[in-house]
Computed example of a mutant assay.
Amino acid sequence: MGLAPNATNITVRQVLEKLDGEFAATAKAVENGEFALWVGLNCPGFCGDVFYLI
């Protein structure tokens, strides 16, 4: 068994497979509006850029 993919080398197919598999409950909660994403401010060096995402 190889190493799990990381954010720099995971493919779109692998992400979709995870959303249909081990993260299906989380994906369903996001779809139903039951999940909140928190963008914290504990991000030294690029905190100013975070506000452009919102």
Rank of each mutant, 00 (worst) to 15 (best):
E31R: 13
L3F: 12
R13W: 00
A4Q: 09
C47A: 14
V12L: 13
F35I: 02
A27V: 01
K28L: 07
N32V: 03
E34W: 03
V12Q: 08
F46V: 15
L53G: 07
I10R: 09
I54L: 15
A36M: 13
F46Y: 14
N42P: 05
F35S: 08
L37Y: 10
L16P: 01
A25W: 02
T11R: 06
I10P: 00
M1K: 04
C47Q: 11
W38L: 15
V15E: 01
F46M: 14
G2A: 02
Q14S: 10
A7H: 08
A24L: 09
G21F: 02
N32R: 05
P44M: 07
F51L: 11
E22L: 02
C47G: 12
C47R: 11
V15L: 15
I54Q: 13
A25K: 07
A4K: 11
N9T: 03
G45K: 03
L41E: 11
E34P: 05
A36D: 11
P44E: 13
F51D: 05
C43Q: 12
F23S: 06
G33W: 03
G33F: 00
V15K: 09
V12C: 07
C47T: 15
L19C: 03
T26V: 14
F51T: 01
V30G: 00
A27H: 02
G40Q: 12
W38Q: 13
F51V: 05
F23Y: 13
E17M: 05
E17K: 08
N6M: 11
A24E: 08
A25H: 02
A24G: 03
A25S: 07
Y52R: 13
A4L: 11
A25I: 04
G48W: 02
E17W: 01
A29I: 01
A24M: 07
I54Y: 13
T26C: 08
V39Q: 09
I54R: 14
A4S: 09
E17G: 07
N32G: 04
G2L: 02
A36R: 09
G33C: 04
V12K: 10
T26S: 10
E34N: 04
W38H: 14
A29F: 04
L37Q: 05
E34G: 03
P44Q: 10
C47K: 09
A25T: 04
T8I: 14
A7G: 06
I54T: 11
V30A: 06
F23L: 15
R13C: 00
N32Q: 10
G45S: 07
F46K: 08
E17R: 05
A24S: 14
F46P: 02
L19V: 02
A4P: 08
G45A: 06
A24V: 08
L3K: 12
K18H: 07
E31Q: 12
G2C: 02
G2V: 05
T8C: 11
Y52V: 06
Y52I: 03
V39N: 11
G45F: 05
T8G: 10
K28P: 00
E31S: 11
A25N: 05
